[in-house]
Nucleic acid binder design. Structure first.
Length: 467
RNA sequence: GUCCCCAUCGUCUAGCCCGGUCCAGGACACCGGCCUUUCACGCCGGCGACAGGGGUUCAAAUCCCCUUGGGGACGCCA
């Protein structure tokens, strides 16, 4: 069977966004699933808008997501000679002609025809004039004037375009650079791309491209147009909808595995399964299960999924990935048992690494910063007694294992006549500064005798001084 | 305006191709409850959809048509 060759061809005019990442993912996954080849190509024929920074950002985003490419990156700017060569072929074959209409004239024509019959199509003024190339000419493709161009889309099914709706579009600009609809085809032909997976905002370009393939006598690839990703208001995704760049999610503490899982699942399904590892995705991905309708990006679901991925990631690995987030808070921690134990207590309570780092601060700081409300609620005078008793009891202890801690707290309960809840909350605030935290025994065990007693004493002091 | 696509819970979706097993299943969110030293996790339960109208058929979420709604494309952008 023929080797599947797919590609991701972004234009470097901004960061890698959610929608682009999903397209990349679909192509990559399909290639991996079919044991094919995945190519990365940068479509930078628009010299004005393409930037080096955007190109770097795209590489960075893809790399973080774990999307690797087998070939490329290719840059269209390195291939201008090739486009000219193919343009010449079309010209020689009578399938392209020079046009001298100015942008202003075209604009006027568009306006008139739009008013007349609602159609916006080049009227073919220069077709048949046999103009020769010059500074003031563009090269246009001579499209089929009649008949139709069928597209057999892998996800949309069959679509038939009337050739009368397809105009003689420009393939080489006045400055000799190729336009998108022409360059993609030349690239895909010369790179042997046989499966084009892209957003369905490209469907209406497809018949134009198919005509180029045919005019060139090249094999038409399989097309799969995936539905769009929309924002909450069902309009096309944009900055208005919040964080849209892939790297923004990295910064917010999302795991690439989770983003991938979410993005792929948005528009593709595998029965009722929601959770997928990278391996699952590669194994199970198929074009047949890409949906036909557009989907709304739901940050809540992504967040929930991220929590799930965190819970299924080995603690040692999480610990390592957490370090940058601790650094951001001025905490310089190295991998090791202490970090890992701390992480272990936070896994179920964290939906992002960012959140985990925030909750982990008390494990690493010298003094505890009390949350105002927490202190007001729990570090009141009536908390002094149990805290004092606990300190005394703890001071006599050698081992801080769970069993002996439990006994210690029981003793405090007996001596003070208080329920565990009444004792645990003040202690929790004394140790962490907050009312919500991992289990008290866990924390005490990890922090160790010295830190625990110091923090309890600090709290006692706080209670006394503020009463 | 013209062309194209789409249409199941608020959202992502299963089911649709090969009509009956669907008074429509799962997930997120939301609301209850259980567990419990807090918060989570986990578990149990609830709320909640086949856009509307016509056909076809013994039978339609599933097939056909229309309407409506949404999206996309109409660039010397990609």
């Amino acid at each position: 069977m023929e080797t599947v060759i797919t590609r991701f061809a972004p234009s470097p005019t901004g960061y890698l966004h959610i929608g682009g990442a999903r397209t990349a993912l679909f192509n990559w996954l399909y290639a991996r699933n079919r044991n094919g080849k995945f190519i990365l190509r940068i479509e930078n024929t628009d010299l004005q808008r393409s930037t080096k920074e955007s190109t770097e950002a795209i590489f960075e985003g893809l790399t973080w997501l774990g999307i690797d490419w087998d070939e490329g990156p290719y840059f269209q700017t390195d291939r201008f000679d090739l486009y000219k060569e193919y343009a010449q072929k079309l010209f020689d074959a009578g399938r392209a002609y020079y046009c001298r209409c100015t942008p202003e004239e075209l604009e006027a024509k568009r306006k008139i025809s739009l008013e007349r019959d609602g159609k916006v199509k080049y009227d073919g003024t220069c077709r048949g004039k046999e103009l020769s190339p010059g500074d003031d000419t563009v090269l246009r493709f001579a499209a089929d004037p009649s008949g139709n161009t069928p597209l057999n889309d892998k996800v949309k099914g069959g679509i038939i375009f009337n050739n009368e709706d397809i105009d003689d579009f420009i393939i080489l600009r006045r400055d000799g650079t190729p336009t998108y609809n022409f360059a993609v085809v030349i690239d895909d032909v010369t790179m042997n791309v046989n499966t084009v997976i892209r957003g369905d905002d490209h469907v209406s370009n497809t018949p134009k491209q198919i005509q180029i393939y045919k005019a060139l006598g090249a094999a038409v690839p399989a097309f799969a147009h995936a539905p769009m990703v929309l924002g909450k208001d069902k309009s096309r995704l944009s900055k208005r909808h919040g964080a849209m760049s892939v790297t923004a999610y990295r910064e917010m503490g999302y795991l690439p595995e989770a983003l991938i899982n979410y993005l792929v699942r948005l528009g593709w399904s595998y029965g009722d399964q929601e959770f997928f590892t990278r391996g699952d995705l590669i194994e199970k991905f198929s074009l047949e299960h890409i949906g036909r309708s557009a989907g709304v990006f739901d940050p809540d679901k992504l967040l929930a999924l991220n929590g799930e991925h965190i819970r299924s990631t080995p603690v040692s690995e999480l610990a390592e990935r957490l370090i940058p987030f601790l650094e951001k808070r001025g905490i310089h921690e190295t991998p090791g048992p202490y970090l890992e134990k701390a992480v272990e207590t936070l896994v179920q309570r964290s939906k992002t690494l960012e959140e985990m780092a925030e909750s982990a601060v008390f494990y690493f700081s010298d003094t505890v910063a009390y949350d105002e409300k927490a202190a007001a609620k729990c570090l009141k005078p009536d908390a002094a007694e149990p805290v004092r008793v606990l300190i005394e009891r703890l001071e006599d202890m050698e081992d801080f294992d769970e069993k002996s801690l439990e006994d210690a707290f029981k003793d405090v309960m007996e001596k003070t006549g208080l329920k565990l809840g009444k004792i645990a909350q003040p202690v929790r605030v004394a140790l962490t500064g907050r009312t919500a935290s991992p289990g008290i025994f866990e924390i005490v065990g990890i922090l160790g005798k010295d830190k625990v007693i110091r923090r309890l004493s600090d709290a006692l002091e706080f209670i006394e001084s503020s009463s």
